[in-house]
Design a protein around this nucleic acid. Structure first.
Length: 149
DNA sequence: GCCAACGTTGGC
DNA sequence: GCCAACGTTGGC
């Protein structure tokens, strides 16, 4: 089992939205590195849900992969803001995974405290200028994060 | 709203 | 294949 982190803007879709809906197709990822990580996700993998571009930036809860990578059809829809002309039905360029809700944390584990922790120093999450929206979480990092919940 | 840092595009 | 210009991300 692997652990991942995925970013979302809570104004668009938050951990409480996921709690309400139970599951969600994680569409709209348009970055190759992030996509390649999604391609390696397995059912049962855990996913930390990170809130970005908001008042309380940080890790807000936990989900699990309930369906592995499959074509992101929003890339084929001209009416979607996620439309990509270079994606075709024969060769869809982008994928989504389906996440199931597990837990909303009692508090947001803030970016500030993650930045301050030596345990997280190697994570792309705290690297200056990193905009990666899907990333793996190391076992040691996961252990540390669990200790904060 | 600002702006630094990044990824992508497209001309050459 | 280089690189300038552009659009986007995301913290503050």
């Amino acid at each position: 089992m692997s652990v991942w982190l995925m970013k979302t803007e809570p104004d668009e879709f938050s951990i409480s939205d996921l709690a309400k809906r139970g599951q969600e197709n994680w569409e709209g990822v348009r970055n190759f590195q992030a996509r390649n990580f999604m391609l390696t996700m397995k059912v049962g993998d855990l996913v930390l849900i990170y809130h970005s571009s908001c008042k309380q930036v940080g890790i807000a809860g936990l989900a699990e992969v309930i369906a592995e990578a499959h074509p992101d059809l929003s890339s084929l829809d001209p009416d979607s803001s996620y439309f990509d002309a270079k994606s075709t039905p024969e060769n869809p360029r982008w994928v989504q995974v389906t996440l199931g809700f597990k837990q909303a944390f009692d508090r947001v584990i803030t970016l500030a405290e993650l930045k301050a922790a030596p345990e997280m120093a190697n994570s792309p999450l705290v690297k200056k200028g990193s905009r990666l929206s899907v990333m793996p979480i190391e076992e040691s990092e996961w252990a540390f994060i669990q200790s904060l919940i």
